[in-house]
Design a protein around this nucleic acid. Structure first.
Length: 115
DNA sequence: CGATTGACGTACG
DNA sequence: TCGTACGCCAATC
């Protein structure tokens, strides 16, 4: 599990998503490109869909599309909507759109490539 | 087992 | 600048 060789694409997605700092957001494409396959951004969405049963909990609410829109908010539990989870972290959301998305954007390539 | 879809992104007209 | 087409991989029908 700790070996990337044994990790599936979406398992690696979970790891990256867990690394997203509190109050920050990331995109499907950025995660996909960080894992090497920039065109597999849809798989990131599929990974998030399955992340409901994955432990530890994956902060999927911090993952939005390239435009900063909460494209997957409909897939979140009604009790804790995606927007509410983001607002709890101090992220302002208006019309399913993250305010100052460019400033809050956490790029795994940029942040983790340095390591 | 083959066809379609999906929480996306890029390329092209 | 806006709208449409394609790719990517897994899951579902």
């Amino acid at each position: 599990m700790l070996e990337p060789k044994n990790m599936s694409f979406y398992e690696q997605v979970y790891e990256v998503v867990r690394l997203i700092p509190n109050g920050r957001v990331c995109t499907y494409g950025a995660i996909a490109r960080f894992l090497g396959t920039g065109k597999s951004s849809r798989l990131v969405g599929w990974a998030m869909n399955n992340s409901h049963q994955v432990l530890p909990s994956v902060p999927a609410h911090r993952v939005v599309n390239r435009m900063g829109m909460l494209s997957g908010k409909a897939h979140f539990p009604p009790d804790y909507p995606m927007q509410q989870l983001l607002e709890q972290e101090g992220i302002q959301v208006l019309n399913d759109q993250v305010i100052d998305f460019n400033r809050l954007f956490w790029d795994p390539m940029k942040e983790l490539s340095i390591l």
